[in-house]
Design a protein around this nucleic acid. Structure first.
Lengths: 343, 343
DNA sequence: TTGTACGCGTTATCAC
DNA sequence: GTGATAACGCGTACAA
């Protein structure tokens, strides 16, 4: 037996499709007895309105999309994402929405955008291309850019990446370190720092500012820059790569905690005494940052708040609010044990 | 300017809607020049096919739904869910699907089911009601039940809950403990253990079997049972409640690591020396289990594999494969430091 | 390549 | 006040 449709109910009940629709969506427009009759039959036949057909006319799916730059498994390996999604989830729950995780389709974010049946998108960490923005516009669905350089007419939620990075670097410099490795996310630009955009550029800017105060530049031979994926494995790789260079750093400034933790684990596995042999500072303050040993000194960013805000901006846009919001949230340095003075 | 539809492209290009559709979905059916012409115009006007309209006829959304028993933020606070979702995500990536997180709508799973625009559901931890199963059937979408008692005609993925629980309890008993607290998930049945079903019942069965081998029963006054939410806070609450009873347990057997870790943190905050003052065993083997101090002895279940399998079963069902699969995955005891002999 | 029916609800508009 | 008729939304599929 096939799916039960509204027409079958209408026929069985001897009423029109309109009446059936009203019985569920606007019962006050119908005589109570009719409503009752229709609902009884619907119940007996096991009628469930088809959500797609409904979306067709209502132009609503009651779903928010989270556009990810990586596949789901990779993204969720990073506690940063989990936290962020929890923020989104809070708002979704309040608003009665579901959350669709939209990873790249066959490796491409561009391909994924047109297919998702959602009312709006939260877009995370757009680094590479701007084509995505154009594509989103074409869909005439609201969207909000998180951790990206947003055009003026697109709502955005960011943190003070520059300030946060500056704090981290300043702290390391103030502890006497001068041989410093910066471990960045992969940019897709192979270390050509002038081409950096978004989060990457902002943080590098912060590092640069802090270094400048100590008469250092990114070109200094004591300052190294490596790019790795933002994952635990990336952190491992970063340490491995750095430790076999002629100029071993005394401090490592990572752009994410997951990278920092990967590096910590690699360093310990390599026999180093932390933080004595190597100081490490992270970025994010994920929950594990306080449990890892030594406790990770890091820059706390309000990840969950970012998620809440992003979802709220989107929900507001769904309700036709036209003002374009650009929000920047502050960061804060969390001092633990992973950075010590260079002797 | 409004959304661009297929009709507009057809008119502008001087062809039929069908031709436009073919230009994208079956280019070989059209003369190359026509395809080119249509695509150019579509590009110029910024045409994006509406995914909902497409779903209307294809009866496909290319989305899998994960039906959650809790809201998204709560679920993702539990690393178990994150791991499971990562498993689902792997398959989604391979199959070109998105993943929709479907939390209860206005507090009800039942309400959430009819609205989600998905091709099929993975249902996690159905304890309370069977109405959901009936509702899913009505939608004529495939679904797979995970960690639940599944009817014979509904595919399911489970782990050997009974065996795993038995191992955990045996280990504790073998270490001489006799005053033991069992910390269970909330069942919605207020501790009426005879009404337990699914995971809860199976694990309790395992505990019971292990206890029986030592001449103990669940009714013994030395054996306590408390129910808490499966969360870190739940673990905290469990410890607090147990520690003020007249018969303080010497060992705590938790149904999830997140509960166990919450209890560990509460116990340490209370000044207890672990594992000396209290032995604790968990269930799941989440990543943090090895990082917490003392390292958590626990029952490892293949969470990610469970996710992969569940998604694979669903994807197979989407491809019309009719065989109903019931899979049970094994568990394994992971010995760390959180259980010591009772002196 | 095209015309047209079709999928399945929703929502004016209209009649009793 | 109740309820019906018919158009609509936007692609896809099938016969021509």
């Amino acid at each position: 037996m096939a799916k039960v449709t509204i027409s079958q109910i209408a026929k069985e009940a001897g009423v029109s499709k309109t009446a059936v629709s009203f019985a569920f969506n606007a019962p006050t427009q119908l005589a109570p007895a009719t409503v009752r009759h229709i609902r009884d039959i619907a119940e007996r036949l096991g009628y469930t309105p088809d959500p797609i057909a409904r979306s067709m006319t209502t132009r609503r799916t009651n779903a928010l999309g989270l556009l990810l730059p990586q596949d789901i498994a990779t993204a969720l390996a990073n506690p940063f994402y989990t936290q962020f999604i929890r923020g989104l989830g809070q708002v979704c729950g309040r608003a009665g929405l579901t959350l669709m995780l939209v990873p790249p389709l066959w490796g491409s974010m561009m391909k994924a955008i047109p297919h998702a049946t959602v009312d709006g998108f939260v877009v995370l960490g757009l680094e590479v291309d701007r084509g995505e923005v154009q594509l989103m516009r074409r869909r005439y669905k609201p969207f909000v850019l998180v951790d990206s350089d947003a055009p003026d007419d697109v709502p955005s939620v960011n943190i003070d990446d520059r300030g946060g990075a500056q704090m981290a670097m300043e702290y390391v410099l103030a502890h006497g370190h001068r041989r410093i490795a910066i471990v960045a996310f992969e940019s897709g630009k192979a270390g050509h720092i002038t081409a950096y955009t978004g989060t990457l550029a902002a943080r590098l800017d912060g590092y640069r500012a802090a270094l400048a105060a100590y008469g250092l530049t990114l070109d200094d031979e004591r300052i190294q820059l490596v790019e790795v994926p933002s994952s635990w494995e990336g952190g491992q790789a970063a340490f491995a790569r750095l430790w076999q260079t002629p100029i071993q750093p005394t401090a490592l400034v990572a752009m994410s905690d997951i990278i920092a933790i990967g590096a910590i684990d690699a360093a310990k596995a390599c026999g180093l005494q932390l933080p004595h042999d190597l100081s490490i500072v992270g970025f994010d303050d994920v929950p594990d940052a306080q449990y890892v040993s030594p406790g990770l000194t890091t820059v706390r960013q309000p990840v969950e708040a970012k998620g809440i805000l992003a979802a709220e901006v989107l929900v507001a846009a769904l309700q036709q609010e036209r003002d374009v919001i650009h929000k920047v949230l502050p960061c804060e340095l969390v001092v633990r044990q992973s950075v010590v003075a260079y002797k």
